[in-house]
Every structure is written in structure tokens, then in C-alpha cells.
Design a protein around this nucleic acid. Structure first.
Lengths: 303, 303
DNA sequence: CGCACATCGTGAGACAAATTCATAACCTTC
DNA sequence: GAAGGTTATGAATTTGTCTCACGATGTGCG
């Protein structure tokens, strides 16, 4: 017995009930009274139940009809909500913005940015996915995420890399540390040191990719720590040295426990990018997020 | 503009997701792969959103597609439940049984009957509607209720009156009451008495319809009381006399506080009927309820 | 890297279903 | 019991959905 209820029927039932009669309901639904009559005849035949009490003339719902009405009133709002959301997607109010960050320290500036963003774009579904930090660009192309924060732009068709801001990876040690005596540090200086890093693969850490790997230098030990605050703690107590972005280091610059030094004489400059699908780059909320990120970067530099 | 989502589309989305691809989904839905392709093209055009990521070949849901899937998984079970209920209606497992009782004392035997009934017919929506006790038969015809317990059968087309059981309205007084001396009571005996009744219109009370109105006798006073237990209390303390069905009176017969007397020398016999729409009378659960009611009546008589 | 394979998209025509028009049947009311 | 309003019906038409056949596009394997 293949029943064939459709949204059309739910709308019809509700309209007939709300407006009390086929003629009125037909007008509201922009179809003829005849069509409605045929429609309910159709459902009644398919479902094998009488939906209306026919004795009285202003057509009244029967028990089964009332049950169907209840279903209509439960289901139709859900569809309305769905349509509203899709309308939002269409005119750019709504959307999904799942962010993958390759650089671990980026949480620091990203959170305040997202707080602001959420207020401006309440209908956008914002999320951070630190899990798939590796392989982030393929995930972007497959639409598993919508924005990747990365410092290694590639020339991929369909993927745009929009510069966010420049930063400098900076050497950080306790003020009592021997290397504090040097005006800057070189790759070779790390050979005898314990290096404290975030727990990610080496090629994605600036110290390694920009300095140690090219120079072929291996630190005496590498210790991986999740939280920035803990890294700072360990460095202060001389359990190792670290390399962190300048915006992180700036917070402890005035603290006499630490010294900061450039990497190489001229320092290393890195640029952070927002990678997005070309189709999305120009979307208003995406552009707005990038603008907010740049503003936040400026604020961090000024601190 | 006017979005045109239908259950078909929800099922399609779900199937494509569950079975991972058009071809598989098409097989499950018993239609061609081409049809599905046309379908999703249709929704995407109407809704103005991409539902799938097309880069990769085993067609994957996009953000909007996932939203639609969520809607599908919320809505489809509701429809399934509805269809199951209608199937129940069709094969007689389910239905509505809203009962109007004209006779106020009938609660006494009706409740235990309904308790039994509910166990046997869990899918039937049982209810008692004492509110519309008057005008119950029109309400039956209009399908506002499905069964009326009445002692005044009428010859209405489309309405069946099935006898339930006979009972006798019995005079009840305190054993110290003067009328306790008589072997039976007549209409004239009420002239000087305070009569305690249920709070309903006189024509629907046996004392009035069968005895006092035909005889043109008016009691000294009429006091209306809702609860049977309270009526008994008032009678025991000699604040008035009452007329109650024998099955109620039977409970206090052996109590020496009360006397019961026939109305007129031969007593009055009344018959209780279940009034139903002819279309419903033969339905299994309806017939079962009537059978249960008769059994309960027999049990009451035996007490 | 390219070929075979699998998956998806498209257009035209066949088919089914929903709607309309015109009108009949029905209930209600005065 | 006639009038007015409300629902039902039948045939024709419109609308929309599906199928068929083929083209386009990725995917995986040698």
C-alpha cells in the first residue's frame, strides 16, 4: 500500500482547517477549489481513511484528519526553517566557515577575531578544526573546510591565498641562558639545546622549515608541549629554548625573566595567508573575516 | 523563488548519502540514476544552493546538502510514524473512541471497562467527554464523539443503539425516614421531600422523566450534587432522598443506615444503550468495548 | 601517462499526475 | 422548497517526472 503523502497535502490540510473550507483555502494556496477536492480525494484513497466529516457542509476534519493536521503543524515549520536558511545562504547572510589552522600559535589571535565575527554574522556556522591540520589544503578543495590559515602558499587552481599579515619567528630563552649573550642566534646555536615546540610535524614549524632543516642542524632534544603558556613556563625555568611568533613573544618582552633574539642577523620574516576556494574568496562574510584578522594583527603588533 | 521541496527529495538526499552515490541510491529507490540526477538538479536550481561537492566522483554532500540531510532525518521518521498510524486505522488496530455519557452515574461502571479496553487496544485513542453530555447525539453524528451512552434511543438514520444492560432506578432514603415505612414509593411521595440529584437537566434524570414529570409532581426542594459518594452521605444524614440506579444502590443495600424501595409497585426498568454511528458499530474495537461493558454490568449485578 | 571503468550530467520523448474548467450534486437556511 | 453557498466529478489540459540513450567527467590501475 504505497502511501503518497506530500508537503502539498500537508499544506492543503492546514489551509482547509485554518480557513474553514475548500474555497477559502484554495484562494490562499493560489489554486482552484477543484484541485483541493481532487487532492483530498487522492489522499483518502491512498491512505484508506476519511480525512473529513462530510455530513456538515463547512468541511470538518475527522479524527484521522486531525492526526494529519498535527503532522502538518509539526513538519511544515521545519521546512519553513530550512527554506529560510537556504534563502540566507543564497543572499550571503548565512554560510559555513570551518577553519583549519596549520599554525598552532594562531589560536592566540584567531579566537578574538572569531568572537567579533560571530556577532556580525550570526547565521554563519563558524568552527575551528585543529584535527585535520595536516592535509588541510586537500580538505579545503573537497569542501571539508572553508578556510585554511597557512604560511606556505601553493599555486593551486581554484584556491586563493590572501595575505593576512607578516610576523617574525623569534628565539626565546631565559635571561640566564648562555645564548642570551649573543645579539642574534644561528642554526648552529641550537645544536646543544633542548628545543620546546608545539606537537606538530617538523616541516610545519618555522624553526625547522626555515632554519634547522636547511642548515642540517639537529637540536640536542625536542620536547613537544601543547599550550603556549606552558612553553613559556618551561623556557623561564631554563628547561629549554623556543621559537615563537613575535606576537606571542611580545607579551613577555618586558618581563626580565626572558630574552628574545632574532633568528640570523637579519631575522626571518614569514607571511600568514588565508587559503580559500576561489568561489568563496569574494563572499561578504569571508572578506569580512579576513579584514577582521588583519585588524587584529595590527592590534597585536601595537601591544 | 518558491522552493519546491518534496518528500521525494528528502528520501533521495538520504539515500544518496546512505548508499554513497546516485547509482546505488537509484537502485534502492527503484528509479533510474538519471531521475535522481534530474531531481537534485531541480532542487539546486530552485533553492539556489549547491547540494553536492562535484569535484570528487562518489558525489559528496556540501554544507547545504548536510543541512538538507539533517532536515530529512528529522522529518522522514515523522512521516513514517504517520503512515504507520494510518495503516493501523485501515486495518482496525487503531482508531478514536471518544465517549459521551448522558447518564451521570455511568462513570461507576465505565472506568473499569475502559481500563480493560485500553490494555486490549493500545492504539485506540480513548477519552470520556462529560462536557457535552447534552446534545450528545448531534455530536455523534458530527463525529465529535464516537460513542454515546444513553437511555433514550431515538430512531435516527445512521445511528445505531445497541442495548448494554437493564437497570432499575431505585428510591433511596435513610432508614429513619418516614417513607421507609412504605413497601414502595409513588410520585406523590416526593411532594414533601428534598430530592438530591446529579447536576443535569431534569429530562435526563430518570426520577423526573419517568416519574415526576408524567405525574406533574414537584419535590419540596431539589439539591444538586456532583459526586455519588456525597449523595449517599447526604441521604444517610437525612438531608434528603435520592433515586439512583440499582447498581449504585447495591453497594449500600446491606448497610442498615439506608433503605431502598421500588419506584411504583412494579418498579421502573430502564435500558442503557451504546449509540454509535452505523459505519462504526461493527468495527472490532467498538464491538469489543460493548462486549466488555455488558460483562461489567453482569459483574455489578452479581455483587 | 593513458586506457578502461565507473560515475554523473543532459536532452528528447514518453508517461503520469496535478490542475483547471464547467457543471452537477449537495447541504443549509430562511 | 427555493436560494445561496459549498463540495464533488469528469474530461481536457497543463505540468512535471521519469526513462532512454548518449555524452562528459573523474578514478584507478597497469
Amino acid at each position: 500500500m504505497g502511501m503518497h503523502i506530500e508537503f502539498r497535502h500537508l499544506r492543503t490540510i492546514k489551509a482547509i482547517h485554518d480557513y474553514g473550507g475548500l474555497a477559502r483555502a484554495a484562494e490562499v494556496l493560489h489554486i482552484t477549489q477543484s484541485a483541493l477536492s481532487h487532492q483530498i480525494k487522492g489522499i483518502e484513497e491512498q491512505a484508506g481513511v476519511e480525512l473529513f466529516v462530510r455530513r456538515s457542509k463547512p468541511l470538518k476534519l475527522s479524527a484521522a484528519g486531525l492526526r494529519l493536521l498535527a503532522a502538518a503543524e509539526a513538519i511544515l515549520p521545519q521546512v519553513a526553517a530550512l527554506e529560510a536558511e537556504f534563502a540566507g545562504l543564497q543572499d550571503g547572510r548565512a554560510g559555513r566557515l570551518h577553519i583549519a589552522i596549520e599554525c598552532h600559535a594562531c589560536f592566540e589571535w584567531l579566537f578574538p577575531v572569531l568572537d567579533q565575527f560571530r556577532k556580525a554574522w550570526p547565521e554563519v556556522d563558524v568552527d575551528i578544526r585543529p584535527g585535520l591540520a595536516f592535509d588541510a589544503l586537500p580538505a579545503l578543495r573537497k569542501e571539508e573546510v572553508d578556510l585554511v590559515v597557512s604560511s606556505d602558499p601553493e599555486d593551486l587552481p581554484g584556491t586563493d591565498f590572501t595575505p593576512l599579515f607578516d610576523y617574525e619567528p623569534v628565539f626565546l630563552a631565559a635571561s640566564s641562558h648562555p645564548l642570551a649573550a649573543k645579539p642574534w642566534v644561528e642554526a648552529e646555536d641550537f645544536a646543544g639545546e633542548t628545543l620546546i615546540t608545539y606537537p606538530v610535524e617538523r616541516p610545519r614549524l618555522d624553526v625547522f622549515s626555515q632554519l634547522l632543516i636547511p642548515a642540517g642542524v639537529e637540536p640536542a632534544a625536542v620536547r613537544q608541549v601543547e599550550l603556549t603558556a606552558v612553553i613559556l613556563l618551561l623556557v623561564a625555568s631554563n628547561r629549554g629554548v623556543a621559537v615563537l611568533p613575535d606576537w606571542v613573544v611580545r607579551e613577555v618582552r618586558l618581563n626580565s625573566d626572558y630574552v628574545t633574539r632574532k633568528l640570523t642577523r637579519d631575522g626571518i620574516t614569514r607571511r600568514l595567508y588565508a587559503a580559500t576556494r576561489s568561489a568563496d574568496t569574494a563572499r561578504p562574510f569571508m572578506a569580512h573575516l579576513i579584514r577582521l584578522a588583519r585588524q587584529e594583527a595590527v592590534r597585536l603588533q601595537r601591544r
